[in-house]
Design a binder for these strands. Structure first.
Length: 406
RNA sequence: GGGUAGGUGCCCGAGUGGUUAAAGGGAACGGACUGUAAAUCCGUCGCCGUAGGCUACGAUGGUUCGAAUCCAUCCCUGCCCA
């Protein structure tokens, strides 16, 4: 113990920008700080990008501070333009509500809400009731357009145009911070580094309206060493929902991160002590695979639980070490009535997006059935392909599927 | 409202009457190499398929033997002016 959480966050690589490092550090020492992070309900699951924020939140909670998890039932109706080149899709009220519920469930898995150790709020509760004129007079007067226009987060939009609707996002988020400060004495807002403009807007609004000193802190975004965003898979985002990204795929994602990113990920995404993180991160060449295994296991454990993490790990090791006969690969039921073409079956079950893709894969030697390369595009499945009712299909090098005859 | 530049495949972006399923790049996918890494190299990259066909260049109509390319109307976006 003893280390200031602020330093913990710095040491683990979370901190990108802070409004006032010295005062915030002091604040952490002198009181239980209520702090908030907002999550806009843009989809029905959180993803890897949110996870890093949740980890930061968890570190602070472990240090005795109180997280306020805000789901953006109000701000979600507007859509944050920060750093984006395109306008966000407008969501229906039903979608927003549904997504908020999904977020709440997921957040509850990472943050301890027992005994008022954390608070969950929805900004729709206050934003949706606001009266336009009142808000303009009360809050709008505190912002100058000149300053807003200078904000970094809109730069991307100068080419494409920014709607007035989106331009207001910053005002709403700033208002959230003011509201949370009034309701809960919330003194700190955190968020991804892309939120910096919105966060300082809130800090300034609090000062103007309440003459209150509050703070802002941004987390580094999860990027690869080459600067590209991390947490993207072929199918899009790396979701925390097991239905959208299976624990196995989730495990594999981290198992395969670049060498250069392993240490950073261990620090940000696991609770391992830093000396262990550094030890693992220092491993070289093939050795670093050990670090990746630890990373994948630890992250999967936090997100999906120890059971699932073990299963994912075992499945992966079985598949990659020898001939895989693991139970945990995606299973496809096949009703053999004679004449089923392998490609058709796999296409129908979404393994290929189209038959053309499957045909191509076979032509390029990328499809394996029970450890034998499939060379015939029109290969027809027979009972002989199934051992004990199942056949193993491998797509490319790493993707396995089990066909099960019924 | 006026002027002007645009809307092309997952994304960016060339193309301006036939040889264009549409250059180039990125992403993605497969192969080689490896450490289930990166980098690199090779291949693929609308759908169905033997040929061949079908669907596609904002939308709808039209001109033409033939249109992403020409015309009309409409929708959307940027910029400038009001």
């Amino acid at each position: 113990m003893g280390q200031n959480v602020y330093d913990t966050l710095v040491e683990r690589g979370f901190v990108a920008q802070c409004t006032n490092e010295e005062e915030l550090r002091k604040l952490f020492e002198t009181e239980k700080v209520k702090f908030y992070i907002g999550f806009d309900p843009t989809a029905d699951s959180l993803h890897a990008g949110h996870f890093i924020a949740l980890m930061a939140m968890a570190h602070l909670q472990r240090a005795g501070h109180v997280p306020i998890c805000l789901v953006g039932g109000g701000t979600g109706t507007v859509g944050d333009p920060s750093g984006r080149t395109d306008m966000r899709k407008m969501l229906t009220d039903e979608d927003i509500e549904h997504n908020c519920e999904c977020f709440k469930k997921q957040i509850s898995r990472f943050i301890d809400f027992s005994d008022n150790k954390a608070i969950m709020v929805n900004n729709g509760d206050w934003l949706r009731k606001l009266n336009y004129i009142d808000l303009l007079r009360d809050v709008g007067a505190c912002f100058t357009v000149n300053r807003m226009l200078a904000a970094e987060c809109y730069k991307q939009r100068w080419e494409k145009g920014l709607t007035f609707l989106e331009f207001n996002y910053m005002v709403m988020q700033a208002y959230d911070f003011l509201e949370l400060n009034r309701r809960y004495d919330c003194k700190l807002e955190m968020g991804g580094d892309d939120q910096w403009s919105n966060i300082i807007a809130g800090v300034e609004l609090n000062r103007r309206k309440s003459n209150t000193a509050v703070y802002g802190l941004t987390n580094k975004l999860l990027t690869k060493s080459d600067g590209k965003k991390m947490g993207k898979t072929a199918g899009g985002a790396l979701w925390l929902d097991a239905e959208k990204t299976s624990p196995y795929d989730f495990y594999q994602y981290w198992r395969n991160v670049d060498d250069a990113d392993v240490e950073k990920c261990l620090a940000l995404l696991t609770f391992l002590p830093m000396d262990e993180v550094r030890r693992l991160g220092a491993l070289k060449d093939a050795e670093i695979n050990e670090a990746k295994k630890v990373l994948a296991f630890e992250v999967t454990k936090i997100v999906h639980g120890e059971e699932e993490a073990k299963k994912a790990k075992e499945a992966a090791e079985a598949l990659f070490s020898g001939q895989g006969s693991a139970e945990d690969m995606p299973t496809i039921d096949v009703a053999l009535s004679g004449g089923e073409k392998l490609i058709d079956v796999l296409t129908q079950n979404g393994v290929f997006a189209s038959k053309g893709e499957g045909r191509r894969l076979v032509q390029q030697n990328g499809l394996t059935l029970n450890d034998e390369k499939v060379t015939d595009v029109d290969y027809v499945l027979t009972a002989a392909d199934f051992n004990d009712g199942s056949a193993i299909v491998r797509k490319g090098k790493k993707k396995y599927y089990r066909l099960q005859s019924k």
